[in-house]
C-alpha cells in the first residue's frame, strides 16, 4: 500500500518541506524582486531581504486597532497554520509525507481558501475603508481563482483517476508520456494564471504598491503591525512557495523521493529547489513583461484561466 502513512520517513519529509517552504518562500519573493530589479536596470534589494524584514517585524510591538476583535489576532495564525498544514502534507520532497493519504486536491485548495477567508476577515475586522476594500477585492479574485485551481488540478488527476496528490505524482512517474499530454499543457497554462492570481503578482496585484486605488492584498493587511504582520507575510510567502513547488512537482515530478531514504530525500530537496526556482524565474519574467491589469479586467484573465482548466479536463476526458 503506497498510501500508507510512513511515520518516520513521512515526518522527516514533512519537516524538510516545512523548513524549505518557510525559508524558501520569502527567499523566492526576494529572488523575484531581484530579478525584476535587474530587468529594470536597478540593483535591487538582496534576495534575503524578505527574511530580514520578517525578523525585524517579530521584534516590533503588537498594535491592535481600536475596534478590532479577536479575529484580528487569530487571522494571521489561521493563515500560517493552514499554509503549514498544507505544506506538511503536500508531496513536495517525498511522495509519502505525513498524512499524505489526505493530501487531496480538495484539502489543499480548501486549506488555501480558508487562509484567504481568514485574511479577508482580518481585513474587515478593523472597520476601516481600506480593509474592506482589500478584503472585497481579494475575495473576488479568490472566488474566481480557486475554482480554476481546483479544476486545473482535477485535469491532472484524470489519467490516474484519483484526487490524491501523491498518487497522481507516483502515477505520473510511472507514465512519463503523460507529461506532454495536451490536457497537462493546458492545465499548466491555467495553473500559472491561477498561481499568479493567488500569490498576488503582477498583472493581478502589485505586491509593491501602496497606491490606494490599485492595491488588493496590501490594503487588506494595512492595519497589521509587528509579529502579526510578520505572520501574515510569512503565510503569504509560504502559500507562494507551496504553489510554485506544487506546480513544479505536478508537471515534472522527477526527483521526488518515493522512498524514505536519506539519500533520496536529499536528492529530492535539491531537485525541488531547482524546479521551484525555475518556476519563480518564469513568473518573474512574466511580471517584468506585463503591466498590472485594471481590477475589472481581472475577471477576464481569471475566466481565461478557468476556461483553460475546463478545456484541460475535457481534453483529458477525450484523450484518455
Amino acid at each position: 500500500m503506497t498510501l500508507a502513512i510512513v511515520p518516520v520517513g513521512g515526518v522527516v519529509a514533512s519537516l524538510i518541506q516545512l523548513v524549505l517552504v518557510a525559508l524558501g518562500g520569502p527567499l523566492l519573493v526576494g529572488l523575484m524582486a531581484k530579478v525584476k530589479a535587474r530587468a529594470e536596470g536597478r540593483v535591487g534589494a538582496p534576495i534575503g531581504q524578505p527574511l530580514r524584514d520578517l525578523r525585524k517585524l517579530l521584534t516590533k510591538e503588537r498594535l491592535h486597532a481600536r475596534h478590532a476583535s479577536v479575529v484580528l489576532a487569530l487571522a494571521p495564525m489561521v493563515i500560517v497554520a493552514s499554509a503549514v498544514v498544507a505544506v506538511a502534507i503536500s508531496p513536495l520532497v517525498s511522495t509519502h509525507p505525513l498524512l499524505g493519504s489526505s493530501a487531496d486536491i480538495l484539502v489543499i485548495v480548501y486549506l488555501l481558501l480558508t487562509g484567504s477567508a481568514a485574511a479577508a476577515l482580518g481585513g474587515l475586522d478593523t472597520g476601516t475603508a481600506f480593509g474592506g476594500m482589500g478584503s472585497s477585492r481579494a475575495m473576488t479574485i479568490g472566488a474566481l481563482a480557486e475554482p480554476a485551481l481546483l479544476v486545473a488540478v482535477i485535469a491532472l488527476s484524470i489519467q490516474s483517476g484519483t484526487s490524491n496528490l501523491p498518487r497522481i505524482m507516483v502515477d505520473t512517474l510511472a507514465h512519463p508520456d503523460w507529461v506532454l499530454a495536451p490536457s497537462r499543457l493546458l492545465a499548466l497554462g491555467a495553473l500559472l494564471i491561477v498561481v499568479i492570481a493567488e500569490t498576488g503578482r503582477i498583472p493581478v496585484d502589485n505586491p509593491a504598491t501602496h497606491l490606494e486605488l490599485t492595491m488588493v492584498h496590501e490594503a487588506m493587511i494595512l492595519e497589521y503591525a509587528g509579529p502579526e504582520l510578520a505572520m501574515v507575510t510569512l503565510g503569504e510567502a509560504m502559500r507562494l512557495g507551496l504553489l510554485f513547488s506544487l506546480v513544479a512537482n505536478l508537471f515534472l515530478p522527477w526527483g521526488i523521493a518515493t522512498h524514505a531514504t536519506a539519500l533520496s530525500l536529499l536528492g529530492a530537496t535539491a531537485s525541488l529547489i531547482a524546479k521551484t526556482v525555475l518556476v519563480a524565474l518564469g513568473v518573474a519574467l512574466i511580471e517584468v513583461r506585463s503591466a498590472k491589469l485594471r481590477l475589472f479586467r481581472l475577471p477576464e484573465l481569471l475566466a481565461g484561466g478557468f476556461v483553460l482548466s475546463v478545456l484541460a479536463v475535457v481534453t483529458g476526458l477525450v484523450t484518455r
Partner: peptide, 9 residues
C-alpha cells in the same frame, strides 16, 4: 497588544 486608532493610510 496596545490599542490604537486604526491607521487607514
Amino acid at each position: 497588544a496596545r490599542r490604537v486608532d486604526a491607521w487607514g493610510c
